[in-house]
Design a protein around this nucleic acid. Structure first.
Lengths: 208, 208
DNA sequence: TAGATTGTTAATCGATTAACAATC
DNA sequence: TAGATTGTTAATCGATTAACAATC
């Protein structure tokens, strides 16, 4: 099993989601060609990706669905549970709390935080919401690994520092803020402005 | 000015956002090194990107901020207004309606739609919300180019088809649904499951 | 047997990285 | 002049694409 680059890695959850559906329909084998057709991808790319999972396929038959699912779950980290916390229970934050797909990927959001007192001490989508001054303590108590950042941009740095003080090792940053954190903290930016720029550029390209 | 690949393109909005801040501080010149340091990027990459904008820099001084901003606005499509509509005013949809950054990128959301009558005929963040059966007509009337899809996954295909019937040419798909649309419709997937998988994989990698 | 599919190797392409010359 | 920064060319790396052999 070889290493996956970022681009190949981004296709794995797509395979996984589709294969799980197929497993529910009791399909035992899936060919690379069938996956490619269903996802609108190039069959050669899919075959290459599947080969790199280490699962062996059978000519004329395809790959065993359950084995593929297991391999993909391992590769995407869905086979182990990650404890996360979320700060900022605004519209975006509560949308994320209510997103059911995360659970299937092994993400457990154990606590949320908000600066506004009226949003605290409730339970949203099964997750208790605490005031911001409880961040460090709660992160420590839960042993959380991942911090999800959906606060206003001007609070992002401060909250991120509290995450780190609580022992978090990765931050999923939904704010446009540029975080300045100690080495070794994994920060993944989730920036809608970036996605939109890519989309607009492509749109412009084709209208030329 | 050369072409930008997807990866380089994703850095342009980061430069643009920072340069706009610097412009407000009346900074006239920005060096690639300074941008790289502020954004945590490799200086070589930044220099290459800036060179490809076509703007000329001056050794020891840097690039003229205003010229860079103009070039980046053109490249990211922020210099022309795109008319968009949004379907699905749930938590995610209303979060997007309230996001102020889109406007600065040239995105104008002229109308929103929802299947629930109690969410219709209101105005959210300046955008009127109409019932779903008004999609085709409204898209036509506005001459909208882009459709933003934040409906539940099982409605995605149907709504996407209505977008297309109204004459939309690109869809920003926030649902996990696989859309089956005519050739020539640009579909950009915005899939949190994909981002999460990348994050979890990286997290796993380093803990090994 | 024939044909579809996997598996592997090579070729192409593009992006990143490195090195260095040019310039203010 | 010295030194920082841009601009350019070459080298490296990785991903995609293509071609074809192996296999059921």
């Amino acid at each position: 099993m070889a290493a996956f680059g970022t681009q190949a890695l981004q296709r794995l959850p797509l395979y996984l989601r589709l294969l799980r559906e197929w497993a529910l329909e009791a399909r035992e084998f899936a060919s690379g060609a069938a996956l490619a057709a269903a996802l609108g991808l190039d069959p050669i790319v899919v075959r290459k990706d599947l080969a790199r999972t280490g699962v062996r396929g059978t000519p004329r038959v395809g790959f065993p669905v359950n084995e593929l699912i297991q391999a993909l779950e391992r590769l995407t980290g869905a086979d182990r549970e990650i404890m996360a916390v979320l700060a900022g229970v605004g519209r975006l934050g509560s949308a994320l709390l209510g997103y059911p797909g995360f659970r299937r990927q092994g993400l457990r959001i154990g606590a949320a935080f908000d600066a506004a007192p009226e949003r605290c001490n409730l339970i949203l989508a099964g997750t208790p919401v605490f005031p911001s001054n409880a961040i460090v303590e709660t992160v420590l108590r839960l042993g959380a690994t991942l911090g999800i950042l959906t606060v206003p941009a001007d609070r992002a740095q401060r909250v991120a520092e509290q995450f780190v003080a609580g022992g978090i090792s990765a931050i999923w940053n939904f704010t446009p803020a540029q975080l300045d954190l100690p080495e070794g903290i994994l920060v993944q930016r989730e920036d809608l402005a970036v996605s939109l720029a890519v989309l607009l550029h492509r749109l412009q390209e084709r209208s030329v």
